[in-house]
């Protein structure tokens, strides 16, 4: 049942992604509208699936693949919120493919349990949910950064036809990326703190290695740098978005180190 639902979700997201990518290139079309319809429909089925899995007695994030599927769910949720609040369909051209990739990755990695079956522990739940949500928000912030850099490049080189008109305005996308990181960063911090306390207090039984700890620290530090330069130093522009992309790479590396062998 759940894998059938996941298949439906994957197809819906995939169609939505294709439509959004086409929307960047085709003028005056309804692709964005249909893209949104498929994204929303997929999201509804996805939500049903999360509930079904949960009702079946499994915590929806007890295994690495399930956690990835949940990341995809959170990415699409964030996308729909962005669409509603900011009216920026262009962002879907990166977010939806990202959601598709998450689900495909989930299907291809081994179904290993996190932290040897102590998922019922409250600590671990808080830890994983916080990390999943922060990952989704960082992923969306990454999309924003890519769009910012592309739009910046187009504006600088004065190539103002085609895609240029369908990409979001610089300041808007800059603000959106900042808001996302501002939400995700406390969640990441919470995730790390729960992990540290959990391991030390013996609530979490999981392997720790210096590499894992270093990767987490680098991720945290990258986003801390971004927030500090943006908020305190008031720095704007291209370099801040390079930091965001570096952060996304750090997130990907850390995830790979933690979740999968």
């Amino acid at each position: 049942m759940s894998s059938l639902l996941l298949g439906v979700v994957l197809i819906a997201y995939f169609i939505s992604a294709v439509l959004y990518l086409a929307n960047l290139h085709v003028k005056h079309s309804r692709y964005a509208l249909f893209g949104a319809v498929f994204a929303a429909a997929g999201f509804v089925v996805h939500t049903v699936r999360v509930i079904v899995v949960h009702a079946g007695g499994n915590t929806p994030f007890s295994t690495a693949p399930e956690a990835l599927v949940l990341v995809a769910w959170a990415i699409v949720l964030l996308y729909l919120i962005i669409l509603w609040r900011y009216r920026l369909p262009a962002v879907g051209a990166l977010e939806m493919p990202l959601a598709v990739i998450c689900i495909l990755l989930a299907a291809s990695v081994a179904k290993q349990q996190f932290a040897s079956g102590v998922i019922s522990s409250g600590w671990l739940k808080v830890h994983i949910v916080a990390i999943i949500l922060s990952m989704a928000a960082f992923a969306v912030a990454f999309c924003c950064a890519v769009f910012y850099l592309v739009q910046n490049k187009l504006l600088k080189s004065k190539r103002l036809s085609g895609m240029f008109r369908r990409l979001p305005p610089l300041e808007l996308i800059d603000g959106l990326a900042h808001n996302l990181v501002a939400i995700a960063f406390p969640l990441l911090t919470l995730g790390i703190i729960t992990a540290v306390i959990g391991v030390h207090a013996g609530l979490l039984r999981t392997e720790t290695s210096p590499v894992k700890i270093a990767a987490s620290a680098v991720t945290w530090a990258t986003y801390a740098l971004y927030l500090f330069s943006h908020g305190v130093l008031q720095w704007r522009g291209r370099r801040a978005h390079y930091v965001l992309i570096a952060g996304a790479v750090a997130v990907a590396v850390t995830t790979a180190l933690h979740g999968f062998k």
Binding site: Q151, L155, L160, F164, R165, L167, P169, L170, E171, L172
Partner: peptide, 9 residues
Amino acid sequence: ELANSIFGD
């Protein structure tokens, strides 16, 4: 148009 692409509004 350009100002809109930079600043949004």
